[in-house]
Design a protein around this nucleic acid. Structure first.
Lengths: 151, 151
DNA sequence: TCCAAGTACCTGCATATGCATCTATTGCCA
DNA sequence: TGGCAATAGATGCATATGCAGGTACTTGGA
């Protein structure tokens, strides 16, 4: 027997599954004019009210600059606004517009359809368990990188 | 209790976990000059010998065009070659160069380090189980999209 | 043989993601 | 109070990912 038969790389396995599921969700969501990531962003904003970009990025396990880029098309399309925080002019507050709320509501049925298709194929309970596992991973601390260690 | 407390979206959970793990692997792999995805591509080529782009894309659960884009930097850096298949001039055969093999070998230690850090934090057995689950997801069939149904 | 389908890939465009680097503000403290 | 470290974003560059649409090649008949 050869050494590495099935994939042993944890990242590769995650990416492959994510691509597959993205394909499903993005295809189903396409009718609503939102991508999966975009919808996730809008959902978080609605839950938080008016989060700063940093808060939003942390909640989504997304680099600040990546979030910055991702917000651009949404702001351009009038789904959200980014305003200076009066209390700390370095911060930006992100808010949904009426249009953003409406778009989110419109995407609800499609999202549910994608969820159902995924859970029908994969199993509802397995999906719930998996989400919990994945949330745990998203919150993992892997220790500091050498460069961050004190001198 | 409010309705949606923890994230219910399967895609969002997958993306968040993948981002987190990507950060770890890409940070550790950085010293070898390869990204996680690039390494996964090179590994698959080495296992297959001289796959066509289509075979490679299928193996990686990656859109053909996405693979096409991903191969560009690797070809540019001389890590692989893309040649016309003599037997079917529509196809392209992808092969590692000496340099590509070397780069892959050099990245081995870093990759193992990332694996260890992940599995130390998450659990080795849990990781093995998760990979199996994720492979199953990557291979799922969600049924046809309406547009593909026969008339 | 010749052409219509079908297959495999390529290009251009748009979003997704993160790093290095830069700018604007705030806070701390000598 | 003057100035510098720390904080929060913003920009530019590079890769990651997929869709729409275009090109090159093969194949199965008429």
């Amino acid at each position: 027997m050869v050494k590495t038969e099935p994939g042993r790389c944890n990242l590769t396995a995650l990416r492959k599954a994510t691509r597959r599921v993205s394909q499903l969700y993005d295809q189903v969501l396409a009718t609503s004019g939102l991508r999966g990531t975009q919808r996730a962003i809008l959902v978080h904003i609605r839950r938080s009210g008016a989060p700063t970009m940093g808060e939003l990025a942390a909640a989504l396990v997304l680099d600040r600059t990546a979030l910055n880029h991702n917000l651009k098309p949404l702001e351009r399309d009038g789904l959200l606004t980014i305003t200076v925080d009066k209390n700390d002019r370095r911060s930006r507050l992100v808010r949904l517009t009426k249009r953003g709320e409406a778009r989110l509501d419109e995407s609800q049925a499609a999202w549910r359809g994608a969820q159902e298709r995924f859970e029908t194929a994969f199993g509802a309970k397995q999906a719930a368990d998996l989400r919990q596992t994945l949330e745990r991973i998203a919150a993992l601390e892997f220790g500091e990188r050498a460069a961050d260690l004190p001198a």
